[in-house]
Design a protein around this nucleic acid. Structure first.
Lengths: 216, 216, 216, 216
DNA sequence: GATGAATGAGGGTTCATTCAT
DNA sequence: AATGAATGAACCCTCATTCAT
């Protein structure tokens, strides 16, 4: 009773950073499987093999925990893309590599994608977080378009560019959703398709082709 | 107590059909504002100016109520679009009118749109309902593309068409989201932008332009 | 719209007494199937083919309605027994006929029995009603025993008699429960068995045989 | 705020096993007083001096809680009886000791008895649990009768035996009900009475005395 | 006489969150 | 550092019961 031997198994008392990653892994998994609301802190703690108070101590509130997931997965995704699409490549090459990296990431981390987008879109507390992430992507895409246009000596109002970029990002997310839902689908092929859609549109823009509403 | 005049407020003891619409109005509003989970049946009932049991009596469970909202808003939207895009018009004209009707609807029913998509996308129980609606839209768009291509004597594999349509629908939803979030934005202008993106893409397809991944 | 013809179907507007029986029929059925608490006034009204306010108008509260069922079924049962066991017969003959009538009734009105006993026993509001009914039966049985004993020139303290009667009634109820649960069981045979148990006990009493606890 | 002495009341933060017993105690009490349906989890939790979620955490649903009560009380009762009626005693001795233990238990745990029988009999979800318990008792009694009969060189069809046993058990339950309702009644005396009824009946059986229905 | 419309009240259940050890 | 024990606060849902027509 008194002389408790101190030889706890070697894999306990892990350093904080490791524990946090375990928790985030569990959280991403559970959030992804159940959705934000249906996910319970109990299940997350269980899944992480840790007691609930620990989760609170390390990662705070359920909302904060979710945001942490968002951050980690979002950062990973951004890094994957940034690592693939070097800024000194020509625009179409950059776009293609970026898309390939993106769909590759989604295909490999379907859980992460579900957390990032499908959950976050619906729950208001995270609309801001998500909007910020999306804004970054829109900005990147718009930058690419702008760069390509300028190289051709053309110029388009920033607002217009942004909307087009927004649409392209939307289309991409939509295909990513589809990819996440189809376990058998091939990320590479999906990227090719999206590239096709995007590039033919962009090519048109490069040539100045525009559609105008008919005179009412 | 003495001689109570019988002019009770006109809004009591209404027939079922009326009350149901009031409830659905309230439900759409509250679901849209709070999200499915955060919305409480109490608030919906309050907002409809009725007691909770009536909601259950007429529209059933919270889930059933949400589905009822989905159905009503979805039907309204589909009718708005179908009413505008007569099937005997040329493809570009149909697309334009359809988009204009769509963004017009979203602009006028921002709440409804939020319920339809932003909420439904996230909550698993409704993924099916939503997928069905989106599938219908994808099918329509794909049909339009196919029709236009055939008119030009060209033909594209159905799977390819569907993915392109999927991407276009995704882009449209994305812009609709953006529109719903920007009270000052002009639906007509947004439709024009989307038309631009879609049509220049489609025009390329008509010409057989295609992007191919570089040989790895 | 104005000239509503007054030829309502001939089977509506029934006299009150008939309506009440219909309601009681429905109530007995529903109470028996669901149990007192699980039974809802809605279901009873539906089953009676009448609107809920009518039920309240005719038979009052849910509790009152249940008591009304209790009364009707109890009275019917008592009448069935009383009609069979004429008071001028010898004790064993009376007992036998009474038991046969009783089990016959239970077998034929399994619903009624379920309402009367199984439900009423559990719900405190009806403990009194039920105790009164049982008391009447105990009294009758005790009377029979007493009569038979006196005919043999023997006499037993009333309290003793009552307890024995109580036990016999309990045994009878127990077999009735069993009978109600076994659709295939034969009431006549069950009555014979109970008679056997009762009469051999009674016969012993008649002879003065008694068991005494061993000296501790 | 200043130097709060650490002698908090001794009844907080108790280990699970203790709390579970407290909860069961409270549950038995409240179920017994109010009946299954009328009992509220709130009252049970209050009575146990604990918050509702703990009840759910430890003992589950209201139904599961009731079953837990059933199990605990049933087991206690069975143990009390089994401990008293050693299987190597002569039949009458066993019966007597068993009955004495039984009525003693009922007298000492009137609440438990009410839960076990009065409530459980009425509520359909528990009919099975209860039937199982009663079946065990019937089996034991039938076994005793059979044993005694064989010792006398006689034999009775099993079905007959079972019905007699069923009746005896019913009679016993009935007296137990009566005992539970009469605070002033003496368990020992009640046991003697039941023994009297049972044993004189059994004695008759031993002698082969039987009642036969008169030829119709 | 008869009913659709309406509700007050309450019960079971769950969960994020925090003590006290 | 780590956890079992504990809870406040809601939320969904149901039902007996009654108006107003």
């Amino acid at each position: 009773m008194l002389a408790r031997v101190s030889s706890t198994p070697a894999f306990k008392r892990l350093p904080r950073a490791v524990r946090e990653q375990q928790m985030l892994d569990a959280a991403v998994k559970v959030f992804s499987r159940r959705g934000f609301h249906a996910a319970s802190m109990d299940e997350i703690a269980d899944d992480a093999g840790i007691s609930k108070p620990m989760v609170y101590a390390y990662l705070g509130t359920k909302e904060e925990l979710f945001v942490a997931c968002l951050h980690r997965e979002g950062t990973r995704m951004m890094q994957a893309i940034a690592g693939a699409a070097a800024p000194d490549l020509p625009a179409d090459e950059r776009l293609w590599r970026g898309l390939r990296a993106f769909f590759g990431f989604v295909g490999a981390h379907r859980d992460g994608w579900a957390v990032l987008y499908r959950q976050a879109r619906g729950e208001q507390p995270f609309a801001g977080e998500l909007a910020a992430m999306r804004a970054r992507m829109v900005e990147v895409v718009a930058g690419m378009l702008d760069h390509a246009l300028r190289a051709e000596g053309r110029e388009v109002a920033e607002a217009e560019l942004e909307v087009v970029a927004y649409a392209l990002v939307g289309a991409t997310e939509s295909l990513a959703d589809w990819l996440a839902d189809h376990a058998e689908a091939d990320p590479e092929k999906t990227a090719t398709r999206m590239m096709n859609v995007a590039w033919v549109g962009a090519a048109q823009l490069l040539q100045g082709t525009t559609w105008r509403p008919p005179a009412a």
